[in-house]
Design a protein around this nucleic acid. Structure first.
Lengths: 212, 212
DNA sequence: ACATTTTTTATTGTTACAATAATCAAATGG
DNA sequence: CCATTTGATTATTGTAACAATAAAAAATGT
């Protein structure tokens, strides 16, 4: 029973195969991994981060064997604008996603801001009279002309041929009154009398702005 | 003779003790944990993040909630398109004519507010610390994480595990500083030191809100 | 009554494991 | 002989399991 080779068995490809098998560093991160205990609520956050990290690593490795010239680098416009790179390394750089108790929802600004497209228009805020209502010069006010204005609403009104955005209020005599939202005293309430031309064009249901 | 303890062997405290044992949620994060496999190079980074998170959780459990950040909101897969008229409120029409005469241009809030969809998300403003920058509680801040933060920008940052929206400034020593926009004195600047965990998540490029 | 010991249960870092994926060698088939 | 298939082998990876520790209350001792 020294040699069984000649014994015609359905020959399997037996024996060990040195050098075979999956190669080191062929995982998702191109580096070894370890396990870490994390709070369950943070798991999705961390997974998101790790995905971004993995993507970055893989992108870098594929770029590595391309030859050619490197990036051009310009001097920063302002030297030492801010030295935050040091801190960034302390924590996950470029954390893209929502974190901790912050629930993730999806939001479309257009849907959020506009109820009825056909009756809505925008107006650019000019003065500072509604500053304390959070309307700064340059802000775009969302005006819906189909909505009925109630006391307390911010409205776009025309008074004697002039457009204005103010808070609608009522006088004792029942006539309307337009209140600024600015306690500096620079703006005074507009008291509407019977002789004045007055029309409410719409209700300001929202606003938006760009900072940068 | 009711006492027979004298010639007994050293007694053990036997028997079961219902209700005993460590209480749930008494761990580092005050919540259950799980394990996650991570690349070894990122382990210290993640541990740092988790430490900050744990610190925040423990702090929150004791003290009440000061101003912070509300939910994160992502953009929908597909943003809606709109084309709505924009008027200038300064146009002083001498006539109570329909405002349609003063059309300036057509505007889509989504296009106006968002530069790069894939790097943008929304955050709900919580406190009044940025009141004077026109950010009221409940407002949605538009955050673009692909933009580079510069001094003077309003940024979404994380400081020791806590999110905050503040104006980015610089200390004399070059370290960053986060300034509130509220002169009431209720909010103080956040001075970043080397020991603090600090990261800028993105630049607030805009905001929007609903009034009604 | 108070301090100490014992028992119980949760936490937590690490190891183990099983399923999967990647890779090469041998076998197979033209 | 070369391309393809099959099988063996090894790394990866998510999860389960474990042991040591920590925390909390009951039981006991003084």
């Amino acid at each position: 029973m020294e040699n069984e080779r000649d014994n015609q068995a359905p020959k399997k490809a037996g024996g060990r195969r040195p050098g075979s098998g999956r190669k080191l560093g062929t995982g998702n991160y191109l580096e070894p991994t370890t396990v870490l205990r994390v709070p369950v609520s943070q798991k999705p956050v961390l997974i998101d981060f790790l995905e971004a990290y993995a993507k970055k690593q893989r992108a870098q490795s594929s770029r590595a064997n391309l030859d050619g010239i490197g990036d051009f680098e310009l001097l920063p416009k302002e030297l030492s604008k801010l030295d935050i790179s040091l801190y960034q390394s302390k924590v996950a750089a470029g954390f893209p996603s929502p974190a901790d108790d912050h629930v993730e929802k999806r939001l479309d600004p257009n849907e959020y801001l506009i109820d009825q497209e056909e009756s809505t228009f925008f107006v650019t805020i000019q003065g500072e009279s509604m500053l304390e209502a959070g309307l700064l010069p340059g802000d775009k006010a969302v005006v819906d002309k189909s909505k009925t204005a109630e006391v307390g609403d911010i409205v776009l009104a025309m008074v004697d041929g002039e457009f204005t955005i103010k808070t609608l209020a009522k006088q004792k005599d029942g006539n309307p009154k337009l209140l600024p939202a600015n306690s500096s005293g620079k703006y005074t309430p507009i008291i509407i009398t019977g002789e004045m031309q007055f029309e409410i064009f719409g209700v300001v249901i929202g606003s938006f702005r760009r900072f940068k």
